[in-house]
Lab assay of single mutants.
Amino acid sequence: NQASVVANQLIPINTALTLVAMRSEVVTPVGIPAEDIPRLVSMQVNRAVPLGTTLMPDMVKGYA
């Protein structure tokens, strides 16, 4: 099972992602792969992401 990126805190809309804001977890459905965490740092989310939410490619500006 592949680990996905999960919000480690509430991430407000247009907030730049940080290492502290993300964690890796095996979840269903699978979201952005955990190995992409370094690439996600400083990218912005295009919606509010609640704690525990799996990050999907369409939630991160410039990711997809």
Rank of each mutant, 00 (worst) to 15 (best):
I13F: 10
G52E: 04
L55V: 08
P38K: 12
P33Q: 06
T18D: 06
G31M: 02
A3D: 05
G62E: 09
A3E: 09
N14M: 08
G52L: 05
G62W: 07
R39L: 13
V26L: 12
T53K: 09
Q44H: 14
G62K: 07
V5P: 00
V41S: 02
T28L: 12
E35F: 14
A21M: 15
N46M: 10
Y63W: 13
M43P: 01
P50F: 09
S24P: 13
T54N: 02
N1L: 15
T54R: 00
S24N: 05
K61C: 09
M22P: 02
N14T: 04
S4V: 00
T15V: 09
I13A: 15
M22I: 08
V60E: 03
Q9S: 08
M59C: 05
K61R: 15
D58H: 13
L17V: 01
N1T: 12
R47G: 05
Q44W: 10
S42V: 04
E35C: 07
A3C: 08
T18F: 05
A7H: 02
A21F: 13
Y63A: 02
Q9K: 13
V30M: 15
V41T: 05
P33V: 07
P50C: 07
V6M: 03
K61D: 12
L10E: 15
V41P: 01
G31P: 01
M56P: 01
P33S: 09
N46R: 09
I32R: 01
T54A: 05
P38F: 14
A3T: 08
T54W: 03
M22N: 00
P57H: 07
A7G: 00
I13P: 12
A21W: 06
V27P: 00
G62N: 12
V45T: 09
Q2E: 09
A3F: 12
R23Q: 04
V45I: 04
V49D: 05
P33A: 06
E35I: 14
V41H: 03
A21H: 15
T53G: 07
S42E: 09
A16Y: 14
R23T: 07
V45L: 08
N1E: 13
K61H: 13
R39E: 07
D58S: 14
E25L: 11
T54Q: 01
T54P: 05
R23M: 05
M43Y: 09
N14W: 15
V6H: 00
I13Y: 10
I11M: 04
L40E: 01
N8C: 07
G52Y: 03
T53A: 13
Q9R: 13
N1S: 14
V20L: 12
A16S: 11
R47F: 06
L19D: 05
P50R: 10
Q44Y: 13
N1R: 11
N1F: 13
V5F: 02
E25A: 14
N46G: 07
L51G: 12
V6W: 03
R47I: 13
M56C: 06
L19S: 06
V5R: 00
A21P: 02
A64Y: 12
Q9I: 12
N1A: 15
A34C: 07
V6P: 02
E35H: 12
T15P: 01
M22K: 00
N14Q: 06
I37M: 13
V45D: 04
I13C: 09
L51F: 12
M59S: 00
R47M: 11
P50Q: 11
G62I: 03
R23F: 05
A64Q: 14
D58P: 06
N8D: 08
N46Q: 08
G52I: 03
V27M: 05
G62Y: 07
V20A: 15
N8F: 04
T15M: 11
A64F: 15
T28E: 12
A16R: 12
V45E: 02
L19E: 08
V5Q: 01
V60D: 03
P38C: 09
V60P: 01
A3S: 10
P12Q: 10
M56V: 07
V20Y: 13
G62V: 03
K61V: 15
R39G: 08
G62H: 09
E35K: 14
L55E: 02
E25F: 06
S42W: 08
S24L: 06
L10V: 11
D36V: 08
A7F: 03
L10R: 11
P57V: 06
E35N: 11
I32H: 02
T15R: 07
P29S: 04
A3R: 12
Q2R: 15
A48Q: 13
L55W: 00
A3P: 13
A21Y: 14
A34W: 06
L10M: 15
A21R: 08
L19R: 13
K61E: 13
V20Q: 15
L40C: 04
V60M: 04
L19P: 07
L40P: 02
T28R: 10
N14H: 11
P50N: 12
V6Q: 03
N14D: 13
E25G: 10
D36T: 06
N14E: 07
V60N: 02
M59G: 01
N14I: 05
A34I: 06
D36M: 12
D36Q: 12
I13D: 10
N46L: 12
R23I: 07
E35A: 15
P38W: 14
A64R: 07
I37W: 01
Q2W: 13
V41Q: 05
N14Y: 11
V60I: 14
V20I: 14
P50E: 13
V30A: 14
I11R: 00
E25I: 06
Q2T: 12
V5D: 00
P12A: 10
R23V: 06
T18H: 05
L17E: 03
P12E: 11
N1D: 14
K61P: 10
Q2A: 12
L51C: 10
T54E: 03
V30N: 11
N46S: 14
S4F: 03
V5S: 00
R39C: 08
E35Q: 13
P50W: 06
M43C: 06
V5C: 06
A21Q: 13
I11G: 04
M59I: 04
M22W: 00
V49F: 03
S42Q: 09
D36H: 15
A48I: 11
K61L: 10
V26A: 08
A21D: 14
A7W: 03
N8M: 06
T54H: 03
P29C: 05
T28P: 00
A48G: 09
N1H: 13
V20H: 13
A7V: 09
R39N: 10
N1K: 14
M56A: 05
P38T: 10
I32G: 00
P50M: 12
T15L: 05
N1I: 14
P33Y: 07
Q2C: 07
N46A: 14
T53C: 09
T28D: 12
E35G: 13
Y63V: 01
L19T: 07
S42N: 15
L19V: 09
P29F: 05
V45Y: 00
L17D: 02
R23G: 10
M59F: 11
V49K: 01
T53P: 01
V27A: 05
N8A: 14
P33E: 02
Q44N: 09
P57C: 06
M56R: 08
S24F: 07
I37V: 04
G52D: 09
A7L: 05
G31A: 04
P50H: 11
Q2L: 14
M59K: 01
P33R: 09
R39V: 10
S42L: 08
V45A: 04
I37K: 04
N8R: 10
V41I: 15
M56N: 04
D36G: 04
E25S: 10
M59V: 06
G52Q: 03
I11Y: 02
M43S: 05
A34M: 06
I37E: 01
V5T: 05
L17W: 00
A64K: 08
V26K: 09
S24D: 06
M22E: 03
T54M: 02
A64W: 11
P12T: 07
V26C: 07
N14K: 05
R23A: 06
P57L: 05
M22A: 00
N8V: 07
S24T: 10
Q44D: 05
M43Q: 06
M22T: 03
A64M: 15
G31Q: 00
N46D: 07
L17Q: 01
Q44A: 10
E35T: 14
P57A: 10
V49T: 03
A3W: 11
V60R: 00
L51H: 11
M56F: 11
G31S: 00
A34V: 07
K61G: 06
Q2S: 11
V41W: 00
S4D: 02
D36K: 11
I13H: 09
A48C: 10
V49W: 04
P38D: 11
L55T: 00
D36C: 10
I37Q: 01
N8W: 05
R47P: 05
R39H: 10
I11W: 01
V41M: 06
V45N: 01
T18Y: 06
A7T: 10
P12K: 09
L40S: 00
I13R: 12
N46Y: 07
S24C: 08
I37Y: 03
A64T: 15
T28G: 05
P50L: 12
M43D: 04
L17R: 00
A16M: 14
A48W: 13
V6K: 01
A16G: 10
M22L: 12
L55S: 03
M43G: 01
